[in-house]
Design a protein around this nucleic acid. Sequence first.
DNA 1: TTGTCTATGACTGACTGTCGGTCAATGAAA
DNA 2: TTTCATTGACCGACAGTCAGTCATAGACAA
Lengths: 200, 200
Amino acid sequence: MAIIVDKEAKRRDIALSCRDLLQEHGIANLTIAQIAQTAGVGKGTIYEYFDNKEDIVFEIITTFLREDLEYLQQLVTLPLSTREKLFRFCTFRYENEQEGEKYRELFKEFLAISLISKEPAMLRFSQEARAAFRIILEQILDEGVAQGELEERFRGAAESLIIFSTGMVVESRLEGFDTQQELNTILDLFFPTPTQGNPS
Amino acid sequence: MAIIVDKEAKRRDIALSCRDLLQEHGIANLTIAQIAQTAGVGKGTIYEYFDNKEDIVFEIITTFLREDLEYLQQLVTLPLSTREKLFRFCTFRYENEQEGEKYRELFKEFLAISLISKEPAMLRFSQEARAAFRIILEQILDEGVAQGELEERFRGAAESLIIFSTGMVVESRLEGFDTQQELNTILDLFFPTPTQGNPS
DNA sequence: TTGTCTATGACTGACTGTCGGTCAATGAAA
DNA sequence: TTTCATTGACCGACAGTCAGTCATAGACAA
């Protein structure tokens, strides 16, 4: 009979081949024609694997988030203070000067789409990603409490920190916003002995 | 000479006449043609007063934010506890069940635009609005410290609360997100005697 | 084993409809 | 007659569609 392709795999392949393109142009300036050309397929083929333009962006972002998750998962295992881990958890998007800028831009665009999109798939995905991040954060907090670095009452602060991080991503679009300083201000609430400046 | 129209005033007029339209359809489903028709002018006229579609939305949002600011300014004068004021400050967008929903939807779309847009005017406006909100928040915090309801070290927490509020707007798009509970969790950090539940 | 035929799903790009934005023409006031 | 506001026909760009083409796995005869 005919060839049967692995739809899921090809979807990922197309997404992967367009990562750079997306980072370079941004979502708004990315056309389906460009995507198709870069992926080396016809425009129609794109719609064989994706519902619409958002869906493509969505898939590409997923590849980034998977990497994020890997990074954060190994962060937990590093020999660092709880405060340092929390700090890195919340600022890892800002770590790399060069690549970080592009990545953050992309993440903002993703946030923008997911703010407006009412697609159930998009919402479900956001929720799953959040849950994964949250588990890691809770692990850091639990360890912090176990090691006496953190008061018991902060064990349930994972949600708050995630909300705060999200807020930081949005606010960082503004000139003069100092991510590290703002995060330290919050972390000072968590740790009895306030430390000014980046604790690293 | 010919007629000289007050550009600024007409800009506001057009924006005002389209408030409902924007709330009804959302930004993505709002066309320039609709806007022009609703405002009772030709499509070309719109571009006499606005640079682009975003600019229109931007102007309409401004009218809402002006109202917000008025509300928050009078909030400071009410005879309420500091905690209650902070609570209301951060949740006022969620107060009204019916209208609040539409309003939040709009605000999210505004956030989405301002996340992506690199228009200097848009960024400047965001920063100005933020500064205005911040001043009110700082006033609440100062009063709280003065009245002994709040420890001195929380005087500089305005920035943190704004970031957190922004995060809440974004996260509230997700099913099962409880604004009030999350805000109380954070406020519990500020106030020595934790109060569970909505303090109102 | 080899050659041939065929069903099927992958693939394509010309085409369509929509929409943001432009501009030449018109109108009105002074 | 000048000047400015107004207008809607028009334009180009782009997302998304669909009728048709192509490539190959498998069936089967020689």
